[in-house]
Write a protein that binds this DNA or RNA. Structure first.
Length: 681
DNA sequence: GAGCACTGC
C-alpha cells in the first residue's frame, strides 16, 4: 500500500470508446489543417479526446513514415504516463513499444516507439543534446494554457527551431481564452528578424486555430449575495447546507492551505456530531501535497452508501488530481501564489484572488460524471473584477536556472529570446548577476566551460549545482550528493498525523546534528539507507515521508550519473563508515561540508542577532529561522541557508547551516568585496 | 516562540 503512488491511481474519468468521441468526426479536417499549416492551435474542451486521439490520427496518416516520431508534451509526469498508457491500450500495443513515455527516472520507450509522451521539461533537456529536436516530425504541446516556465520556454524554442526546420509540425493545445495569444505569438516575427521570414510564408498561412467541442455536463454556478467575512466558516456552513438540502454526491472545497484545511475539518467534525440522524454521516478529508501518499489515497476511496465525502483541498485538485463522483464544488476564490522580488531576492507566498480561468477550472471539477453545482464564496460583482488569467510563472519567478538553461541551449542573447511573455528585465538581470557570481557566466555573460555548462546539466538549482561541483575540492562529494538530493525534496521530508506534531518533533530531534539542517538531512538519509534498510516501516516509525525518501535515492543516483559523465568520480567508501567515525573525524568532515556549502550559497548568508532573529547580508530584512529548522531555537553567528520565503507577515529561512564569517570572503571575494556588505550586518 | 500553493529536470 505504501508503495502505491497517488499519481499511478489517477483514473481518467471519461473513458469512452474512441469512435464515440466528438473528435472522431473531425479527423479528416484536422489532418488537412496539420498538413497545411506548420502550426495548429487546438482548443480542446475537457473530454474532447485531443491528447489521446490526435497523435493516433497523425501516426496513421503517415507522419512517422520516415523514421521520425510524434512527441506529445505534458506539464506533469502523471499526465504523461496516464495518457500514454491509455493510447497504448487503444492502439493495442505494449507500453514502451509503438507508444511510450519518458519522464524523469523513467524512460519507457524503445527503438520501435512512434508516439512518445513526455514532460515538457524533459523535451527541453533533449534539446540540449539535439538542438533541432530532429527526431520529431510533430510536436504537440498539451495544456499550454497553464503557462508553466517549461511550456513557455519550449514554445520559444519551437518557434526558433521552425525557422530551421520548416517541415516540423507544431500543435499547441490551449483553453479558449489563450488561443489568440498563441496564434499571435507564432504568426508575428520576433522584432529583430522581422525583415527575413525564412520560409517567406504570409502569416495567415503559418498558423490557425481549430476548436473541438467537448463532453461535459452542465454546471449551475451560484454566487453569494454579499461578501463572506470568513470564507472558511462560510465554506463549512455551505457544506452543511448542501448536505441537508441537496441530493447525493460528494463535495470538493477549494481552500488555500494546510492550516485552513485542518481548521475546516475540525469544524465539520464538531458540527457533524449534532447533525440530525436522518441525514447520513459526513466524511471530511484533507488533500494537499505535503501529505504522505497513504494520507492522500483516502480521497479516492468510495464512501459507504449514505455517507457523503467532503474533500478540503488546496489548488492540487484544480488540475493535478481528479476525484471521481464530485457533484458540488465550493470555491473560496483565493489561491496562494508564489512570486519573486528581484530587488530583495526574496520569494513571497501570498494569498491572492484567483483568476477567471481558475474559477472556471474549479467549477469544471463538478461536472465530470453528471450535472453539478459550483458555490462561489464571493459575489458576482467580485467575480467580474477578477483578472482573466494570472501572470505567467516566467514573469514572477527566480529565473536563474531558466537563464542558465537557455544559455546552454545556445541562446546567448537571452534578453532578445522570443518569449511568449517577456519577463521583467529586473528578473533577467538578477538571474544574470547570480550566475556570474557563481562563475557559470563570464564577464561577457557567456556560459563558462566546463563549470557553466555542467551546472546547466545538473538537475538542481544553480547554487546547489555550484556546491556539488565544488565538493571534490572539499573532499565531501558523496555527502554533498545526498544533501543535494535531500534539499531537492522541498521540505517534504517529515509528516505527521493529527495531534502527532510532538511525536514528529521528537523524531526529528533524534536525527539532529549540531552544525545545522544540511548535516541533519545527511544523517536522516544515511540512517534510512543503513539502519532503516530503505524500508517504509522505518519511515513510518520515524515520521519520515517514505515517498520522499525513495525519491531522494533516485535523485541522488541521477546526480551521481551526471557527475560520472563529467568524469568526476564519487568515492562512496568514506561516507559508508561515518557511523563508526570518531567525534574528531565528524568535526573535520562537517567543516568540509560547511565550507563547501558556503562556496555555493554565499549569496544566502545571514547573521544571528542578540534577539535570536537573523539579518541578511544587506542588513535590512528581519529573517526568522523557520520552525522546521534545527536552528529555530539554537544559537548561531553566521549561517548560510537554502531557501528564503516571505509568508504572511514574516520572512523565513529554511535549511540552515552554521558557517564562519571569513569563509564568505574566502570563497566569494568578489561578491563580498564589491558589495562591501559582509561586515555591515 | 510557530509553520510551504503547485509543478518539473
Amino acid at each position: 500500500m505504501a508503495e502505491l503512488d497517488l499519481d499511478a491511481s489517477f483514473i481518467p474519468a471519461l473513458h469512452k470508446p474512441p469512435s464515440l468521441l466528438p473528435i472522431a468526426k473531425h479527423r479528416e479536417s484536422l489532418l488537412y489543417v496539420v498538413e497545411t499549416f506548420p502550426i495548429t492551435i487546438i482548443i480542446g474542451q475537457t473530454g474532447s479526446g485531443k491528447s489521446t486521439q490526435i497523435p493516433q490520427f497523425l501516426e496513421r496518416a503517415g507522419w512517422c513514415s520516415d523514421g521520425k516520431i510524434i512527441g506529445v508534451t505534458q506539464p506533469r509526469r502523471v499526465a504523461a504516463t496516464t495518457v500514454a498508457l491509455r493510447v497504448a491500450d487503444e492502439v493495442g500495443c505494449e507500453i514502451g513499444k509503438e507508444v511510450g513515455y519518458s519522464i524523469r527516472f523513467e524512460d519507457v520507450t524503445s527503438a520501435s516507439t512512434r508516439i512518445k509522451f513526455l514532460t515538457d521539461a524533459l523535451l527541453i533537456r533533449e534539446a540540449l543534446a539535439d538542438p533541432l529536436l530532429s527526431r520529431y516530425s510533430v510536436i504537440m504541446v498539451d495544456e499550454a494554457h497553464e503557462r508553466s516556465i517549461s511550456t513557455d520556454v519550449l514554445l520559444g524554442l519551437l518557434k526558433k527551431i521552425r525557422k530551421k526546420r520548416p517541415e516540423l509540425r507544431i500543435i499547441v493545445s490551449s483553453a479558449t481564452l489563450q488561443a489568440e495569444e498563441f496564434l499571435k505569438f507564432f504568426t508575428q516575427s520576433s522584432g529583430q528578424e522581422s525583415q527575413k521570414e525564412e520560409d517567406g510564408q504570409p502569416s495567415n498561412e503559418i498558423a490557425t486555430i481549430v476548436s473541438l467541442e467537448g463532453r461535459t455536463y452542465p454546471i449551475d454556478t451560484l454566487y453569494l449575495e454579499s461578501p463572506a467575512e470568513d470564507y472558511v466558516e462560510k465554506a463549512v456552513n455551505t457544506v452543511f447546507d448542501i448536505h441537508t438540502q441537496e441530493g447525493e454526491g460528494d463535495i470538493l472545497v477549494f481552500l488555500t492551505g494546510r492550516e485552513e484545511i485542518d481548521n475546516a475539518i475540525q469544524m465539520v467534525a464538531e458540527r457533524a456530531a449534532q447533525l440530525d440522524s436522518r441525514h447520513g454521516p459526513l466524511q471530511p478529508l484533507p488533500l494537499y501535497a505535503g501529505l504522505s501518499t497513504e494520507q492522500q489515497m483516502y480521497v479516492f476511496d468510495k464512501t459507504p452508501d449514505g455517507t457523503r465525502k467532503v474533500v478540503f483541498s488546496t489548488n492540487i485538485a484544480e488540475a493535478s488530481v481528479t476525484i471521481d463522483g464530485i457533484v458540488h464544488v465550493i470555491d473560496c476564490g483565493f489561491v496562494k501564489l508564489r512570486a519573486y522580488n528581484p530587488k530583495t531576492g526574496i520569494e513571497t507566498l501570498t494569498t491572492t484572488p484567483i483568476s477567471k480561468a481558475s474559477a472556471s477550472q474549479r467549477a469544471g471539477r463538478a461536472g465530470r460524471t453528471k450535472a453539478g453545482k459550483c458555490y462561489r464564496l464571493y459575489t458576482e460583482d467580485a467575480y467580474q473584477t477578477l483578472p482573466e488569467t494570472n501572470p505567467p510563472e516566467i514573469q514572477r519567478s527566480n529565473l536563474a536556472s531558466t537563464i542558465l538553461q537557455l544559455k546552454a541551449l545556445g541562446i546567448d542573447n537571452v534578453v532578445r529570446f522570443d518569449f511568449l511573455s517577456a519577463p521583467p528585465s529586473e528578473l533577467m538581470s538578477k538571474a544574470l548577476e547570480l550566475l556570474y557570481s557563481l562563475g557559470a557566466l563570464d564577464e561577457y555573460a557567456k556560459l563558462t566551460q566546463p563549470l557553466g555548462s555542467r551546472m546547466a546539466e545538473l538537475a538542481v538549482e544553480p547554487m546547489m549545482a555550484k556546491t556539488l561541483l565544488s565538493a571534490p575540492q572539499f573532499n565531501c562529494l558523496s555527502e554533498m550528493l545526498t544533501i543535494a538530493a535531500m534539499t531537492s525534496l522541498g521540505g517534504n521530508v517529515w509528516f505527521y498525523h493529527d495531534g502527532e506534531r510532538n511525536k514528529m518533533e521528537s523524531s526529528r530531534r533524534k536525527f539532529a546534528v549540531e552544525e545545522g539542517d544540511h548535516l541533519t538531512l545527511l544523517n536522516v538519509y544515511q540512517t534510512f539507507i543503513t539502519k532503516g534498510k530503505k524500508e517504509a516501516k522505518f519511515c513510518h516509525d520515524h515520521n519520515l515521508n517514505y515517498k520522499s525518501m525513495t525519491r531522494a535515492i533516485s535523485i541522488r543516483a541521477q546526480l551521481k550519473r551526471y557527475l560520472e559523465r563529467f568524469n568526476i568520480g564519487v568515492d562512496e567508501t568514506l561516507s559508508s563508515n561515518q557511523q563508526s567515525s570518531s567525534t574528531v573525524d565528524h568535526g573535520k568532515k562537517a567543516e568540509q561540508i560547511r565550507r563547501c556549502l558556503t562556496s555555493g550559497y554565499f549569496a544566502h548568508a545571514a547573521r544571528m542577532q542578540p534577539d535570536g532573529t537573523y539579518r541578511n547580508v544587506e542588513g535590512g530584512t528581519i529573517l526568522h529561522a523557520h520552525p522546521n529548522s534545527l536552528m529555530f531555537n539554537r544559537k548561531a553567528d553566521w549561517v548560510v541557508f537554502h531557501e528564503i520565503m516571505e509568508t504572511g507577515e514574516k520572512t523565513y529561512i529554511r535549511d540552515i547551516t552554521k558557517i564562519e564569517k571569513n569563509w564568505l570572503v574566502e570563497y566569494a571575494p568578489e561578491f563580498y568585496r564589491l558589495s562591501g556588505t559582509a561586515t555591515r550586518a
